[in-house]
């Protein structure tokens, strides 16, 4: 019992779970608001013989589309299009392997210049290519 006094912080139940439930309630309230005032549209039935243009992808695919349109340069034998579709894979792989590259003992952002620089570069890329995807007409 004496040992347990070293433990700091509040218990998971009820304190922490209540905080999460509070946040989740706000989220669900927001969702009900969105679903009520901005209902999800249902367009015309699918018609394989009438191409629909333009097509807007979901916002989370915008960076992908943006880069695909942005990159028009072949590198050696690799065509621009192939680079365009492989880039998101490389992006994902870098993200996946991050802990095995940014090792070090430090946690504070100000002491992890390399890691934070990568994070900012990746965030800027996502935003820029999304923006590029919006300003250029989507296929």
């Amino acid at each position: 019992m004496e040992e347990k006094e070293k433990v700091e912080g509040w218990p998971f139940i009820p304190n922490h779970l209540l905080m999460e439930a509070f946040a989740a309630t706000i989220m669900i309230a927001g969702l009900i608001f969105l679903a009520t005032y901005f209902p999800t549209p249902l367009g015309d039935p699918a018609d394989p013989f009438t191409t629909l243009t333009p097509i807007f992808p979901e916002w989370y695919f915008l960076p992908l589309f943006g880069f695909l349109k942005f990159w028009i340069w072949d590198i050696g034998p690799i065509s621009a299009k192939v680079i365009g579709v492989l880039a998101p894979g490389v992006f994902g792989l870098i993200l996946l392997l991050l802990p095995f590259w940014d090792k070090g003992e430090e946690y504070h952002p100000s002491k992890r210049k390399k890691g934070i620089a990568l994070m900012i570069i990746m965030a800027i890329m996502l935003v820029l290519f999304s923006y590029y995807s919006i300003i250029t007409e989507v296929v």
């Binding site: 015309d44 039935p45 699918a46 018609d47 009438t50 191409t51 243009t53």
Partner: peptide, 10 residues
Amino acid sequence: LPWDQLAYWA
């Protein structure tokens, strides 16, 4: 899944 034009062509 909604199988409308946008769904199909996207």
